[in-house]
Nucleic acid binder design. Structure first.
Lengths: 366, 366
DNA sequence: TTGTACGCGTTATCAG
DNA sequence: CTGATAACGCGTACAA
């Protein structure tokens, strides 16, 4: 009725233009801050837009401009760090979003469910043109998403290293640095029989951390034998089972490094049941310090500090630059960022007391 | 060149049609499963689409059809449950997505950062027509998002009760049931001085749980006095401070119920430092049982089991129905769902030993 | 400074 | 069963 379709809700650019007795072109220019519009007109348009509650339809805008103004962040269900996982990513999102906002872009999160295929999922996002850029996380060693995105020439950043791809932008935690600091500390305390708890499954970082530890040990003339490598589920339950496995071991380690912190919670639980005290009977080094993780474990856990907000800001900033460059027809050199982590000493590696009663068989100190 | 614009990537419906020597209309019909297209043609189109990697541009499709095929799930940064928060929502997402997929819809998550205004954030999503429906979470007592969405007649579900709105669809945890079960258990064990740890800030559920506890106590002739109400941060640190506060109390409670489980972790930590054992010296009842939360607390925590996946499935299913109804021009009666939670007894309320040395002043049992 | 008109990619209507 | 064509809402050349 009266030119207004039945069931139509909201106001579009035509309504607004008609209301003001100007053309839609003028409305568009005024609202998009173009120079060639009089101050008076702009004021009227902006005021009316606010009053009528107009905001441009994103589909129309995207279709016309060829860009969506959105950046996707893809997370994968069953590869998540079981416990710290969620708080981990939320903090990262905060950083990403704050940076993107400065470029007038928005962050949307795509959650790849347990029963969905990550590669298909990523393809759908890209092909339907839902976003201008994509951040993928929880990369695997062979990650076909990366090959696809490169081949497709789509702006993306991988949060996590991979053997796939090559000259693409990625950011990852400093597993080598963490391994070096952890192994250095433990060796200086006299440990030589050091176990590594890495994650099972196909996420890449477990493998990266394991090799980093192997290398750090090798630099000190210590070989990491298979019986010292434990692939566990990244969960409290995984940590609990790890504890069982260590306690049942015929020749247990004197020290242990973990690839993730929820493992520590379950491990502590099992160790306490067995009367084994971390830091006294077994040295334990955790991983990332997050509010979720083991701030309140007792004895306190030696772990590594990092700023997830700043990490997210790096992702957001680099993504904005990638998209900006593409828009300008330019090409940007891919960035590779190793995110620093700083050790925070806790009681779990605290001065080793050689004479303490030790249910685990201790190796003689060097 | 050759009609192919510089820099153009991907193939659109015209390319595909030209390639097959059919019209774009036929391609569209074939791909959208319309009846009026020959089997032979459909086969050819589908095969070519797959081979050329065609998938429809979502902006074009949305613009034309007036629907996006997407459902938004808005989560808010600084209102998140600090620790269990993330795993909590991820599990819900899984359920939502599995249901939406059956209706051919997708889930996108919008993360409202700490510095953004939730109402403005929600408005932007709706007005730009980014989604066909919106699930909002972490509702406040007065939640202007709800008023807005109702006034706008936009399909939405609130995950969390609110004093705002009224005849809209919402789902919430069974705080009354939890309070009743918790208070019943504690009273039957002889407790009469029962404290309630609720959450600070403006999320509604802290208030709901507090009042539910007050009512459950009143039914048993017990008044919940102000000194027994603790508003704490929903975090391990909040739980730690709660412990400090309880220990410093001149007339401490003999039992305590918590509105969230990360509080339990910090609380346990402080209690252990003070030599106070949950279940012996102080009865503690936690809240939602999640993998993240205190599965491995010792003594084990009495808490409540719920299926977050099924909860998410309810949200997804109801949202699909809401959108379907709107599409058909029909109107659906709003649903209100109280999600059941079932008590899981742990050692933290385990048989009270009256004669045990009790650092906290115990009230005489009834 | 402003208005007009085209096209972004798609689906739907209407002839054929 | 298929092809041509008109929208959907917007941004932007180009003309005035």
């Amino acid at each position: 009725m009266l030119g207004r379709r039945e069931g139509k809700v909201g106001v579009n650019i035509h309504d607004l233009a008609r209301h003001l007795n100007v053309s839609i072109g003028t409305v568009s220019r005024a609202l998009n801050g173009r120079a060639d519009v009089s101050d008076e007109t702009r004021r009227r348009v902006v005021a009316a837009a606010k009053r009528l509650g107009y905001s441009p339809n994103q589909s129309g805008r995207s279709l016309r401009s060829g860009a969506t103004g959105m950046v996707g962040f893809m997370i994968i269900a069953n590869r998540a760090r079981a416990s710290s996982g969620e708080a981990f990513f939320m903090t990262v999102f905060d950083g990403v979003q704050s940076k993107l906002a400065k470029s007038g872009m928005d962050l949307v999160i795509y959650y790849c469910g347990a029963e969905q295929n990550p590669e298909t999922f990523a393809k759908r996002i890209v092909e339907r043109k839902l976003v201008d850029g994509l951040i993928i996380s929880q990369t695997t060693r062979i990650d076909r998403r990366i090959d696809y995105l490169i081949q497709r020439k789509f702006p993306f950043i991988a949060f996590g290293r991979s053997a796939s791809g090559g000259a693409h932008s990625w950011l990852d935690l400093d597993f080598e640095g963490v391994a070096e600091q952890a192994i250095d500390l433990l060796c200086r305390q006299g440990h030589r029989r050091i176990a590594v708890a890495t994650c099972e499954g196909d996420v890449n970082f477990g493998h990266v951390y394991l090799e980093a530890c192997r290398a750090a040990l090798a630099r000190r003339g210590i070989e990491l034998t298979d019986d010292l490598i434990h692939a566990v589920a990244m969960s409290q339950a995984g940590g609990y089972r790890l504890g069982e496995s260590l306690l049942a071991s015929r020749k247990p380690p004197t020290a242990l490094v973990l690839v993730e912190n929820s493992i520590a919670i379950g491990l502590y639980s099992k160790l306490r049941e067995a009367g084994v005290t971390p830091g006294r009977d077994l040295a334990v080094v955790g991983f990332d310090q997050t509010p979720t993780s083991s701030l309140f474990l007792s004895p306190s856990l030696t772990q590594f500090r990092l700023s997830l907000t700043e990490l997210g800001a790096w992702l957001g900033g680099h993504m904005a630059a990638l998209i900006e460059a593409r828009r300008a027809g330019a090409t940007m050199p891919p960035a590779r960022k190793i995110w620093p982590m700083e050790i925070v000493l806790g009681e779990s590696t605290g001065p080793r007391i050689a004479r303490a009663p030790d249910p685990l068989l201790a190796e003689p100190s060097v």
